[in-house]
Amino acid sequence: MLKIKVKLVDGKISKKEMVLNKKEVTVQDILDILEINRETVLIRKKNELITEEEILDNGDEIEILRVISGG
């Protein structure tokens, strides 16, 4: 079981905690669950950009910045 905190910055800011019944999760997995097109966002962890292939650890907090509208 993995807990990932997600901050979605999309004009306004919304936060959610995702609980995933998986041993390993990537940023792309999170985007797929949230139905967000990777072409429309950038991802930050601890204020640094990360790629969609980055493997997340339990308790990680990521920021999804919507940089292109209409995704």
Partner: peptide
């Protein structure tokens, strides 16, 4: 466009 945003953030 996405890379422009990335560049500005970096």
């Amino acid at each position: 466009e996405r890379e422009i945003a990335a560049y500005a953030l970096v």
